[in-house]
Structure formats: structure tokens, C-alpha cells
Design a protein around this nucleic acid. Structure first.
Lengths: 229, 229
DNA sequence: TATTCTATCTATAAACT
DNA sequence: TAGTTTATAGATAGAAT
């Protein structure tokens, strides 16, 4: 029901003021907590349109002390610090971009996995697949065949029962298909503010294996389909 | 499981640093949200023990602008503002005290109600009741008798059925007793940090009526039992 | 206009990697 | 030491008072 706050100027005057009052209060509380809990000096200055005087925090002594320090810093020193802040921001942006790339790659993998299992279980392949898609899909299926083969061999080695290989193979494929289908969520490819930047929380054994240590395998899933930014 | 944060310096160095990093990050985010959502100018300066440079917010332009304003304010003007801040704090304290009084009064009422219904339902009265307690209790019972009387009259007026008065009266008493007992939570009388400062969320009709408009009734429940602060 | 209520979103303490 | 995860405490949007 309650909508997620969109990080943008609140156009409605009334709503903005209400929000300001709540958030202003919350902010000062947080700042107070930070200074008390962690024993740091800090101050905040807020020029609100609702009061003629800027709102300051904390009380008399605190702000004067902190501000005094700032007064004593020459102008050019200040600029230098600001530039540091700017480069810090650039780092942040780069990090966010890296995360984006990672999520896109993950999404691509999940999509492909979904396609693969659709193909394996329903026997039909979706139209409109690009050459790249088909290539990745083929790759993925080959990976899985290898995996199955490897697992069969492992089981053979260790088997103390009389299970035959065909049964084992079927079991592995069915198991993998179920888990993969459950986990394959095709995520948003857009670049909006709401984009999911979280890394996926559960990797299937297939993806683990693909991402994993085997250097002989050529890695598929480039970001060919996504615009560079 | 997770304990409620106690508003005090975190003694454990490791825990304090972890907390600082999280809260610092959270604070700047909040500040950014405030400025964007509500279109206000603001800045924060944090002198952390973990960085040689004070942490500032927001980026270059923002801080310089806000700080410049502050630089241009004469020292004595600053003091004046700080005093305003101080008086603002005094107001806050007074408000908190008022709230405390209110909660204490509410608690007193709830205790008395509980006693009354224990007396009415179990027929025995707890020992160690002071003269004041007994007086309040008598008062409260009289109030309730009046209320019952009033309700009976109302029902008589409006009754289109053939219900007799005795039945109605019994109904009212039973109903009131149940609701009152459910709602009567005897709250903490201490003055610790954890004290419940919330106003009670559900008033019974009896308390509504006691607090309400009838000026003829002498109000019981002074704060006689509590130390003034 | 401010306060209260409450469903929901967000921050973060603690544990784990 | 820093990043991740998870459960819970805390903040707050929106509605009602």
C-alpha cells in the first residue's frame, strides 16, 4: 500500500513540509546517537524554508567548537578537501557500475538457464533468439552435459550400491532442472532508480560450476546485449 | 534476540568502529534524502577518530556554500543562535516532563481500575492500600455507578424492546469489567531511560467519561504518590 | 496545523564469511 | 578487516483525529 519513497523533490507543498519535519527530527536524532554511541564530534547545519534561522546541531558548545575548527581552515585547504570528496564520489560511482555489470551478467545467466530448462522440459525453443543467445544456450547445455558426465563418474567411483548409471543421470538432470527453475528470476534490465543492485543470494550448483575453477572452459555470457554506460 | 541499543558510548572498540561506519553511512544517506526530497540546503561535518580529515557532506559546492554562510556570521550572532537552541532544548525537556505526568496519571487510573474490578469480581480488597488509594478507589466506583445509572436511563429512553432494567444493568457491568480488565496494564513507575512515554492507545469508556466533559465531578488521581522532578 | 496511529519501509546489530 | 546475511529495532508515509 504505502509506496516506496522515490528519491526526488516532493512537489506537493503540504507533503513536503510534513516529510521535512519528520525527517529533520529523525536526522538530528541519528546525529545525536552517532556522537554519543561512537564518541565523535559532529555538527549539522540545515537551512530550512520553514524557519528563518538555520537549524543547527548540537547545542551551543558543540557547534561553536566544530565551526571554529572550520573557520580556522584556510579557503584553499577547504577546496582540496572537497576535491578529495569528489574523487571519493567517483569511486562510489565506479563501484556502482561494477555492481551493475555483475548483476547484468547474473541476469543473463539466469535467463539462459531458464531457456535451457524450457527447452529440455518442453522441447520447444522460443523464437526470436539471436545468434548470441543460441550460442550461449548451446554453451550452457554443453556445460551441463559435462557436469552430468562428471557427476556420473564421481558416483560410479564412490558407489557402493548397485544403482545403474542411467537412473543416476536422470536423477541429476531432474534435480538440477527443478532447482534451476525455482531460482531463475529474470531481473530488470533497465537503468531506473529501482534497479536491483543486490548480488543473487542463491547460486545453483550449475552456476557455481560455471563461475568456478575450471579454466579450460570458455566463459559465455558477455554483456553483448546491454548498452555500455 | 537483537538487543535494543542503549544510548551510551560503546565501550568495545571493535563494535564501536563497526557501528560508526554503518551509522555514518546511514546518516549521510539520510541527509542526502532530506536535501533532495525537501529541497533544503544542509551540511554535516563529522570528526571521526578513524580518519585524519573530517568527513564532510555534501559534495564540494554544497559544503562550501553552507560554510561560507556560516563564516559570514559574526561570532556574537552565533552565540545568540545557540542560546535559542538552548531554550528550544528547555522546551523539549518541559514537554517530556508533561508527558511523564500524563503517563503517570494514566498509570494511576489503570491501577485503580484494576483494583476496582478485582474488588468487584473477587470480592476481596488488597491490603496495604493507603488512605489516598482507598479514596480514589471509592471515587472510581462511584463514577462507575453513575455511568451505569446514566446508561440505564439512556437505554430506557430508547428501548423499543421489552428488556427489563436489571438485565441491562448486569450487561453493562459485565461488559465494562471485561474490557477494563483487558486494558488495564500497570505500567512502569520508574524513571529509567526505558520508560514508556507513549500515551495509552485505548481508553475504556469509563476513562473517557472520567476524563471527559462532566465538570461536576471532582477529579481523583492526583500525582500524590510520585516524587516531583 | 499538529498529533496519533499503524502498516510498511529502512537501518543496523549480530553473526558469519 | 571488510563484505554479506538475517532478524529486529527504528523511521516514516499516509490516513485519521
Amino acid at each position: 500500500m504505502r509506496k516506496k519513497v522515490k528519491l526526488a523533490f516532493i512537489v506537493n507543498d503540504k507533503a513536503r513540509k510534513v516529510s521535512y519535519k519528520k525527517r529533520h527530527k529523525g536526522l538530528l536524532k541519528k546525529l545525536a546517537e552517532l556522537t554519543i554511541l561512537c564518541g565523535v564530534e559532529a555538527c549539522a547545519i540545515i537551512y530550512s524554508p520553514y524557519e528563518s534561522q538555520p537549524k543547527v546541531w548540537p547545542s551551543q558548545r558543540g557547534v561553536q567548537k566544530v565551526i571554529k575548527k572550520f573557520r580556522s581552515i584556510p579557503e584553499f585547504e577547504l577546496s582540496k578537501r572537497m576535491l578529495n570528496q569528489e574523487s571519493f564520489m567517483k569511486q562510489k560511482v565506479q563501484k556502482a557500475k561494477d555492481q551493475l555489470d555483475k548483476v547484468r551478467k547474473d541476469n543473463r545467466e539466469k535467463e539462459m538457464s531458464l531457456l535451457m530448462f524450457q527447452y529440455l522440459t518442453e522441447g520447444n525453443i522460443i523464437d526470436n533468439l539471436s545468434l548470441v543467445d543460441l550460442n550461449d544456450l548451446t554453451c550452457l547445455i554443453n556445460e551441463n552435459l559435462k557436469e552430468i558426465d562428471w557427476r556420473m563418474k564421481e558416483l560410479n567411483k564412490k558407489a557402493s550400491t548397485t544403482q545403474n548409471q542411467a537412473q543416476v543421470a536422470e536423477q541429476v538432470v531432474a534435480d538440477g532442472a527443478t532447482r534451476q527453475a525455482e531460482e531463475a528470476q529474470v531481473m530488470d534490465h533497465g537503468q531506473g532508480f529501482e534497479m536491483n543492485m543486490d548480488a543473487p543470494q542463491n547460486e545453483s550448483w550449475i552456476l557455481d560450476w560455471i563461475n568456478g575453477a575450471d579454466d579450460e572452459v570458455l566463459m559465455p555470457f558477455g554483456d553483448a546485449n546491454y548498452p555500455k554506460n
